[in-house]
Amino acid sequence: MKNILTAEGITAKYQAENGEITAAEQIDIAIAEGEFVSIVGPSGCGKSTLLSIMAGMLTPSSGRVMIDGELVSGPNAKVGYMLQRDNLLEWRTIYKNVLLGLEIRHALTPENIEYAEGLLKTYGLYEFRDKYPSQLSGGMRQRAALIRTLAVKPEIFLLDEAFSALDYQTRLEVTDDIYSILRREGKTMVMVTHDIPESISMSDRVVVLSGRPAHVRSVHPIEFEKDHLTPLARRDDPHFNQYFSEIWKELRGNEA
């Protein structure tokens, strides 16, 4: 399959008065269209940095990111980015929150608005459109945040520990929920996380990063006998634990 996003030789350094921090070193990753890739690594190794670079929000010290064969040099319209928290604006209704991305991109056309409303309907938030974020449950808020990003029609979704602010129970539900929505919309997804089970339950491939400065330690294709298992179903599959111990050893190898 064709690669939609490639990161080539990415090195990222932060400058501060008390020194230089190298957050990523010579990272090469290629993501195929429609693929779900997880990037796992210990906290503080440079995962968020890498993702911000892929999104064009941060310029790497060296290396380059290509999307659809084009060099990324700034925030990219083909990329949707989801952060840890839903970051819904408390003073806007759900409807207004969902339209924020379109508003910022000056793309509030009747077709786009209709599309966003369609998403609200499809994903069960239409009746809640006039509510405020504080009136919704954590799962629904996350879903609203997802629709806000879907509304600008990105091809690639970057998820930065997108569920880790939720409590465990909600998190499992939301993971299932968001996963099925994104699959259904046929998006390419890159997710960074420090949660191994989460990465196995969702992805086609898991990339393990070393501790700081992050470089690619190993890549694990994830395959289950049955296709299209939901993240929750995958957790019950006997292969799950096998993948878990495999990746866990790799991650632990980091610290030794």
């Binding site: 949707g80 910022i104 991109r105 990003t149």
Partner: peptide
């Protein structure tokens, strides 16, 4: 985080 969210939309 809110600022970053807005920046993700450019």
């Amino acid at each position: 985080e809110l600022l970053k969210m807005a920046q993700t939309f450019g």
